[in-house]
């Protein structure tokens, strides 16, 4: 019998971090304001008190320094979990992530492993100022050597953060910022599935709707409305953005013949684009229609008074469902 507990996503991440730190004393948590304050979203709340200054500490406000020292700590045998405070603040660390962290195992011909986790709250919908609402995942998914995941619910949050910490390779965890307070049951005993598996969330037979992170909730809403309107939509939570679990996607697309991919990120050169290309390449004779993408526009993230129109919602997804059904 497994025991369950209702938690919000932020709390589930917190509990997952706590569990990982209890299980392995080499796990360290650091970043901007993660210690006494517990992070601006309180994801690290209580960890400083429980594990002390040596294992949970504030870094100077220097993102390259945060990731660069995380690399050095990993070389010394630690398992650092570094927080980048907001999506738009990750870019000062871009060299350390893409040219160093991602490549050191390759550069050293396997002599070094890089078990570093970088947590990034991402996405919009919270009425924030510039650089606090972005979806930069494609930059990192493009880089060999990184593993990238995005949990969409508390149970995945609790388990995937622990799986990321256990990985011998660097993992970037994109956390669905606007869903931090969304509650759900967490199984405290058994992990649901491997970190890089996609999950079939809702069965349907006319359209496959693929989403990840904050957009999963929106996708489920769209499927619900779709069902009322007579369209049977199958929903898949991608969970892992690199690598992508193509077998699960292909099996669904081969059943439905139609795929809509929804994400907050601009669609140009995105995770969605790559999935569209791969699905077309490997499922050409199964497809009834071209793969459609629903996403942010190819603009900078707009001022927050305009974000409601920028971010895909259930209606925008259903508009694409209508188009794909019309083929």
């Amino acid at each position: 019998m497994s025991s369950y507990k209702d938690m919000a996503i932020a709390k589930a991440l917190n509990a997952g971090l706590q569990k990982a730190m209890q299980d392995d004393e080499k796990v360290l948590v650091f970043g901007e304001d993660v210690a006494e304050l517990g992070g601006v979203f309180r994801v690290t709340e209580g960890l400083h008190k429980e594990f002390g200054e040596k294992r949970v500490f504030n870094s100077p406000i220097a993102e390259s320094g945060i990731v660069g020292t995380a690399i050095g700590l990993a070389m010394r045998g630690y398992r650092p979990v570094a927080e980048i405070q907001f999506d738009g603040f990750v870019f000062p660390a871009f060299n350390q992530i893409t040219s160093q962290l991602a490549k050191l195992t390759y550069r050293s011909e396997g002599f070094m492993q890089m078990p570093v986790v970088i947590r990034i709250p991402y996405g919009g919908g919270i009425g924030a100022v510039e650089h606090h609402s972005e979806s930069p995942e494609a930059y990192f998914a493009h880089t060999a050597g990184l593993r990238i995941i995005s949990p969409s619910n508390p149970n995945d949050a609790y388990w995937m953060i622990q799986q990321a910490i256990q990985s011998p390779d660097p993992v970037i965890v994109f956390e669905p910022k606007r869903r931090y307070w969304q509650k759900g049951p967490v199984n405290l005993d058994v992990a649901p599935m491997p970190m890089h598996s996609a999950r079939l969330l809702r069965e349907g037979n006319q359209v496959t709707l693929l989403a990840y992170g904050p957009m999963v909730t929106t996708a489920l809403q769209a499927a619900e409305i779709g069902a009322e309107e007579g369209v049977s939509i199958e929903v898949i939570d991608l969970r892992s953005l690199a690598p992508v679990d193509y077998p699960t996607i292909f099996a669904s697309v081969q059943k439905t013949g139609r795929l809509v991919v929804a994400a907050e990120a601009p669609t140009n050169v995105s995770i969605s684009s790559e999935i569209a290309a791969r699905v077309a390449e490997h499922n050409f004779y199964h497809l009834e229609a071209p793969v459609l993408r629903v996403g942010g526009f190819d603009t900078p993230y707009p001022p927050s008074k305009l974000e409601e129109a920028y971010l895909p919602d259930a209606d925008r997804i259903l508009e694409a469902v209508d188009r794909i059904m019309a083929y």
Partner: peptide
């Protein structure tokens, strides 16, 4: 440690390593 071609990148690794030595 390995040669580092992006200037200065290795210095942060060294500091992180030194932090770990102290821990």
């Amino acid at each position: 440690h390995l040669y580092a071609i992006v200037l200065g990148s290795q210095v942060l690794h060294a500091v992180g390593y030194a932090m770990g030595v102290k821990f």
